[in-house]
Design a protein around this nucleic acid. Structure first.
Lengths: 193, 193
DNA sequence: TACAATATACTAACAGCGTTAGTTTGTTTA
DNA sequence: TAAACAAACTAACGCTGTTAGTATATTGTA
């Protein structure tokens, strides 16, 4: 009706805001439309469907996470770089849990764009490992180890799986990162042989 | 109509079967009812609601995972125990991904029963660490590290996050477990001081 | 400036979902 | 045999994503 200059980006931004404030769980196209003062069906002039909307939000989340990580390791090396990286990852997960969740819902198989996003996830940890003399094979394994540790902590804490004990989960996470650094150091020694 | 002796357990078992064969994503009460040759509303004679159904399936999943882990570490100690434990956990996640996912959907806050289930998750890794001379504080942190590593690997591999490289994810996981064992060993040394 | 084309909004509807209320019917108990 | 209970039913509610068809405002062109 009262035509407003709604762009594709406006839709995505509103969706992100809504998900962050109300939670991914309760997000719906009708609610999104309501916030934009249009009907749900009108959204289809801007987006193909809900899957695609989630995919775009996933891209956004990945790029935000990547930015935060790269900022954190700037000018740092080895132990310091890894710890700063882990800290940035952990904070992102705690501060923006709803957006973080969207990343995992990305169907990583589908198309080339998502495949490309997969490399955006990897880049920061790969860069942080530059200070270690590792083979490419070692790096490919070790980046998985790092990401698994970090994702494991974030998703389990979010799910409430750490509530049995009062100890700070961030402290446990730092311990895990210490183990990862140990792994980097002994891998380095093995690579020299 | 043609009254069949449907028990509460029958419902849960059918739901588990359906989730494992068709996926958690497409699971619905109407589909479950269809498999049992009743209408969806009739399910409410046996279950309170869908949340409670998921909770019960979550309990089942936790107990299955616990059993598999305890079986794996029987008669083993230290490095062997940890590796066997990790292997059992990893296999469970790969072989029964849909049921595994239900565990995380458990709202760990709610009631005492769920709180108790939380300890069932912890028990195997706590037992496996018995062979290490660690303080209780260390154990409480380290069980989180172990669970984060394992959950991180399973959920990321399931989500397709490891598809960038051809290397076997199980191999990466073993590397992570090696890091965890390193952590156990140096924690042991620190505890003795 | 006028007309055609396009983009953006609308209404109405569909099938699916979890869930509830009220009703019927078969089984079990007194 | 009658009463009580359990387990099925039908019908409906409000919610979801999505599509089809329609109206209207903006934009590009002759």
């Amino acid at each position: 009706m009262a035509r407003q200059g709604l762009t594709h980006a406006d839709i995505i931004n509103a969706a992100i805001e809504l998900i962050e404030s109300e939670g991914l769980h309760s997000f719906s196209l009708r609610e999104l439309a309501g916030r934009l003062h249009i009907k749900a069906s009108s959204l289809y002039n801007h987006i193909r469907n809900m899957d695609e909307l989630y995919t775009e939000i996933g891209y956004y989340a990945i790029s935000e996470l990547k930015k935060a990580q790269l900022r954190a390791i700037e000018g740092k090396e080895r132990t310091q770089a890894i710890e700063a990286l882990a800290d940035a990852y952990y904070r992102f997960g705690k501060e923006r849990p709803e957006i973080y969740k969207v990343i995992l819902s990305l169907p990583m198989v589908k198309n080339d764009a998502i495949h490309k996003a997969g490399f955006d996830i990897i880049e920061p940890i790969m860069t942080a490992m530059d200070g270690y003399r590792l083979t490419d094979l070692q790096k490919r394994h070790l980046q998985r180890v790092f990401r698994s540790i970090m994702h494991g902590f974030i998703s389990q804490e979010e799910a409430g799986c750490f509530r049995q004990f009062p100890e700070d989960a961030a402290e446990s996470c730092r311990m895990a990162v210490r183990g990862f650094i140990l792994l980097l150091e002994i891998s380095e020694k093995e690579a020299r042989i």
